[in-house]
């Protein structure tokens, strides 16, 4: 167990370097630089001013030097300075990353919880009305684009019914106190988390259902039934636990894509996460911020996968004994 954790932690180092190098090369390959964007926006045409900005932004050095300097600074926990935002990259990202993580976690929570429940119900009631309904819903949420679903939810719950806010994370300019604030955030979180979570819920429903059905047909389930165990006990003690493994695997794999999906949802709900920062930074070729976001996300995803592995270890004795 300890060895697993240590190896996994060490693996993060080459992963981060790989993420940096790949994204740095990609940004270098894209035409235009941050300098072009900044000088065009500010209408700077004076050659001396251009030269000063070039030095300030570090474009007077070769890309290799820029890259090596950047990797070094990342390992001293310094993600650089963004001249576009006039602030240290780490500050900008840390101000926005928590909101994205909150949205991701709640969305995944919704997806896993309801996905598993629906999957279990569908598999137990296989080929009945309920199974068909759940499968239909799963296909619908899997097929519906998340941004469309988001706008539809806004129209129904915010515009028509007026139950929930259209966007943002808090009600601006009102002080509700500590618990009031938490309730306020929850109210703002419901629609974006649902829009993002329903797509993944559909996947978990399908996987859970298939996995349950597969386990149902295995010998040890027949044995359990033959022993005279109650159906509930067969389902939860034997089938469910064994069917859970593919879901956990999927969870680890999907964390990164949920991050991508949250970028879209943040745009729809004006959720103050890193999505809009990331888009703007890619568009303006602001590589310190782009790399900063990717490095931090890589670390977050790597840690989350480590947690998934540990969960796997606990859930499946066969892995422990290997």
């Amino acid at each position: 167990m300890k060895r697993l954790i240590i190896t996994r932690l060490l693996q993060i180092i080459p992963l981060v370097i790989g993420v940096i190098v790949m994204n740095f090369v990609l940004i270098q390959m894209a035409p235009g630089t941050l300098l072009d964007i900044m000088t065009s926006e500010q209408q700077i045409t004076d050659p001396a001013a251009l030269e000063r900005m070039r030095e300030l932004y570090g474009y007077d050095q070769s890309p290799i030097i820029q890259l090596l300097k950047y990797i070094y600074s990342v390992f001293t926990l310094d993600l650089g300075y963004s001249y576009r935002q006039n602030a240290p990259v780490l500050d900008i990202i840390l101000a926005q990353l928590p909101s994205t993580l909150l949205l991701m976690l709640v969305a995944i929570g919704i997806a896993v919880t309801f996905g598993m429940i629906a999957g279990v119900i569908a598999s137990v009631k296989v080929n009945t009305f309920w199974d068909v309904m759940i499968s239909l819903a799963a296909v619908f949420f899997f097929a519906a684009p998340t941004f469309w679903l988001g706008i539809m939810l806004i129209i129904v719950f915010s515009v028509w019914l007026g139950w929930l806010p259209v966007g943002g994370m808090t009600t601006i300019g009102v002080d509700y106190g500590f618990f009031g604030h938490i309730w306020d955030v929850i109210r703002h979180l419901i629609l974006p988390a649902l829009s993002l979570g329903l797509f993944y819920m559909a996947i978990y429903t399908r996987v859970m259902r298939a996995s349950m059905l597969e386990v149902f047909s295995l010998d040890f389930v027949r044995t359990a039934r033959a022993k005279g165990l109650s159906t509930t006990r067969v389902i939860f003690a034997h089938v469910y636990r064994n069917a859970l493994l593919p879901v956990v695997t999927l969870l680890g794999l999907q964390l990164a894509t949920v991050l991508g999906g949250s970028v879209v949802i943040e745009a729809v709900f004006s959720w103050p996460g890193i999505g809009s920062l990331m888009l703007d930074s890619v568009m303006s070729r602001n590589y310190p911020v782009v790399l900063g976001v990717f490095v931090l996300s890589a670390v977050v995803v790597a840690f989350a996968n480590l947690l998934v592995d540990i969960a796997y270890y606990r859930l499946d004795p066969r892995i422990r004994n290997r």
């Binding site: 941004f147 706008i151 806004i154 515009v159 259209v166 966007g167 745009a267 004006s270």
Partner: peptide, 18 residues
């Protein structure tokens, strides 16, 4: 307030938030 998505801005106007 900033919304990246124009359709969401329209919804926010209709809901009276904007």
């Amino acid at each position: 307030r900033y919304w990246r998505d124009a359709a969401s801005r329209a919804a926010a106007m209709e809901a009276g938030e904007l």
